[in-house]
C-alpha cells in the first residue's frame, strides 16, 4: 500500500487532485501548520473533508508548527473542531500538542513531523510508542539511511517525492529586517530568492509568514526516477508539496506520480514509462526552478 499525499491550495484544486486520484490531501493554516500553499478556514477544511470522503480519500491537517504559549491555548479547541470535521489525521511537530492530544484522548491519529529532526528508526519508534501512526523523515537523509530506517521503524515513514524542501526556519522576519536596514520598500515576497556567495546560479527561495522566515533548497525534489527504490525500501508515504508549483501545473505533476504508483503496484514499471513520466514532471515544473534528488543518492559519509 502506497499513500500519495499532496498539498492543496484551493477547494477547486483539491477537487482536481482527488480526480487525479491522490490518496490524501494535505491542508491547514499557518497558525498551526508550517509552509502551506494556502490557509484554509475551518469551513473550508470541513468542505474539503466532505469532498474527499465522498471519494474515499483522506484529509491530513498540518499541526506541525513550533507552538508558543499563545497558540498552545488554541490547540484543544482546534482539535475538537478537526474531530468534528472528520479529519483523518494530523501532523504534529511540537511535543506539547502531543501532550494535549493524549491528555484529552482526542481520537485523531497523528504523524510526527518536526522538519529536520527525524533521522533514525529509534526516534520514529519513540514517537510510535507515544501514539504516532507515522513519521515524516528529515530531508537530509540518504537512500542507504532510508532503507535502514524503514526496515527498523514500527510505523510507516514519509518522504518528500516532489516539491520544495525547507532548509532553514527562523522566527525572525529576516527579509523585513534586511529591507528595513536598506530602506527598500516592502516587496512582493512570492518570488524572492537568495544565492550563495560565489555561486550565482543558486536560487534558494525565501519567504516570511507569521511563523517567521523559511528558506528552501536551491533544487526542488523530484524522486520520480527513484520511486522503485522507495518501493523496494518499503517506504509507503509519499508527499508532493505544491508550495512553489501552483494551480494546474501541480495537478499535472501529481498525475505523473499517480500513474507511476499504479504502474509500480501493477508491476508495469518500465524504463520507458519512467522516462516519459519524468519528462512530463519536468515539463510542468516551474521553468525558473530546478529539480534534483536532494540527499537521496549521497553517501551517508558525504555529510558529517
Amino acid at each position: 500500500m502506497i499513500e500519495l499525499i499532496a498539498t492543496a491550495e484551493s477547494i477547486n484544486q483539491a477537487r482536481l487532485l482527488i480526480d487525479a486520484d491522490v490518496d490524501t490531501l494535505y491542508i491547514g493554516e499557518a497558525t498551526f501548520g508550517l509552509r502551506l500553499p494556502a490557509n484554509f478556514s475551518p469551513e473550508e477544511i470541513k468542505e474539503i473533508c466532505h469532498i474527499a470522503h465522498a471519494e474515499h480519500k483522506n484529509v491530513c491537517v498540518a499541526m506541525n508548527a513550533i507552538i508558543h504559549n499563545d497558540r498552545i491555548k488554541l490547540i484543544p479547541r482546534y482539535l475538537d473542531f478537526l474531530q468534528e470535521a472528520g479529519v483523518d489525521y494530523v501532523t504534529i511537530g511540537d511535543p506539547g500538542v502531543i501532550h494535549l492530544l493524549n491528555k484529552y484522548e482526542v481520537p485523531i491519529p497523528y504523524v510526527y513531523d518536526p522538519h529536520t529532526l527525524v533521522t533514525s528508526a529509534k526516534q520514529v519508534n519513540f514517537w510510535a510508542k507515544r501514539g504516532a501512526k507515522g513519521a515524516v523523515l528529515a530531508r537530509e537523509l540518504t537512500y542507504e539511511e532510508l532503507i535502514s530506517i524503514s526496515q527498523h521503524a514500527d510505523v510507516p515513514v514519509e518522504v518528500l517525492v516532489y516539491g520544495a524542501t525547507c532548509i532553514h526556519h527562523s522566527k525572525r522576519p529576516l527579509v523585513t529586517n534586511y529591507f528595513s536596514y536598506t530602506n527598500e520598500k516592502s516587496k512582493n515576497q512570492e518570488h524572492l530568492f537568495i544565492s550563495e556567495p560565489k555561486k550565482p546560479k543558486t536560487h534558494y527561495s525565501i519567504y516570511e509568514d507569521l511563523n517567521g522566515t523559511h528558506i528552501f533548497d536551491t533544487n526542488d525534489i523530484n524522486l520520480l526516477p527513484h520511486l522503485e527504490k522507495l518501493v523496494n525500501a518499503g517506504i509507503s508515504k509519499w508527499k508532493l508539496d505544491g508550495i512553489y508549483t501552483r494551480g494546474q501545473a501541480f495537478v499535472e505533476v501529481v498525475k505523473q506520480f499517480v500513474q507511476a504508483k499504479q504502474a509500480l503496484l501493477d508491476k508495469d514499471w518500465s524504463e520507458e514509462l519512467k522516462e516519459k513520466l519524468n519528462e512530463k514532471v519536468q515539463e510542468h515544473h516551474p521553468s525558473e526552478r530546478t529539480l534534483g534528488e536532494g540527499f537521496f543518492l549521497k553517501n551517508p559519509n558525504d555529510v558529517q
Binding site: 513550533i66 522538519h115 529536520t116 529532526l117 533521522t119 528529515a138 530531508r139 537530509e140 532548509i167 532553514h168 526556519h169 527562523s170 522566527k171 525572525r172 529576516l174 550563495e196 517567521g212 528558506i215 533548497d217 536551491t218 540527499f295 558525504d302 555529510v303 558529517q304
Partner: peptide, 20 residues
C-alpha cells in the same frame, strides 16, 4: 538565527551536518 535544530543550511551548502 534560526530555531535551533531547524536549520540545515550547513548540510546543503557545506556538506556538514549542523545537527551533528
Amino acid at each position: 538565527i534560526s530555531y535551533s535544530g531547524r536549520c540545515t543550511l550547513s548540510n546543503h551548502m557545506s556538506a556538514r551536518d549542523a545537527n551533528r
